[in-house]
């Protein structure tokens, strides 16, 4: 696979994103330079290929990704991988607020810490954070897993639906309607397998799994017909 270098600088983001698409579809791997933490880089990437941002990126990098392997050398801003449905996004540094917001699939791997509301309203997929989770991790997350090797900040798992937040370190406080449960052995195996796949050290971790207490699920019937009457 040949490598194509694309420079960002102060050029138009639409043109740059178009260049990414053309290069990836032509079978090149892409190295992006002079990123300047600019927003909306690599939004709407295709089902395959590799792109390496050699610097920090701004908001929404890798948003709507369908399958590309994205690597960010330094930090990422808000909404990294928002609504992505496939592929892997790796952030070597810090990833800002709402990482993986509303994601539908794929994997986000943050090697540093994550900002507030990591995985907000995510629908599926995994977010692995080697550092610490910020405030309200997993806020209103529907499904999928958030896995933190470090600690979790305040209000962890606030208003969760069916998603899970796994924390190996300390939990500052739980959010509304969140509870800690003992994970099943096979669930731990699944998490360990994912971490191994990411090249992380295999060792015992004192996992706490945070799920919804379901007290906010005030409706008694899950029969959709009853809601159609409203």
């Amino acid at each position: 696979m040949s490598e194509k270098v694309i420079q960002v600088g102060h050029r138009d983001i639409r043109i740059i994103n178009q260049e990414f698409l053309e290069a990836l579809e032509a079978g090149h791997s892409v190295v992006v330079t002079d990123t300047l933490s600019r927003h909306n880089l690599g939004v709407g990437l295709p089902r395959s290929g590799k792109i390496h941002f050699d610097g920090s990126v701004g908001y929404y990098c890798g948003g709507l990704n369908t399958g590309t392997d994205v690597r960010v050398e330094n930090n990422a801003g808000w909404g990294t991988g928002e609504a992505m449905s496939g592929g892997i996004i790796t952030v070597n540094g810090y990833s800002g607020m709402s990482t993986g917001a509303a994601m539908l699939g794929g994997l986000i791997h943050v090697k540093g810490d994550c900002g507030p509301r990591c995985g907000v309203a995510m629908k599926a997929g995994d977010i692995v954070v080697e550092g610490n989770l910020g405030y309200q991790a997993g806020f209103m997350a529907h499904r999928g897993r958030i896995i933190a090797l470090g600690s979790a900040g305040p209000s962890c798992g606030d208003a969760l639906w069916e998603a899970e937040v796994w924390v190996a370190g300390d939990i500052e406080s739980l959010g509304v309607d969140a509870k800690i449960v003992e994970p099943e052995a096979e669930e731990v195996e699944g998490v360990d397998a994912l971490l191994k796949q990411l090249g992380l050290e295999e060792r015992f971790r004192d996992w706490r799994k945070i799920v919804s207490e379901q007290k906010l699920w005030y409706f008694e019937s899950r029969d959709a017909n009853s809601w159609l009457m409203i």
């Binding site: 300047l36 600019r38 701004g58």
Partner: peptide, 14 residues
């Protein structure tokens, strides 16, 4: 408010 603004003053610092 945004990191990309900081880049205007310090383009090489992350």
């Amino acid at each position: 408010t945004e990191e990309q603004a900081v880049r205007r003053i310090a383009p090489d610092r992350w």
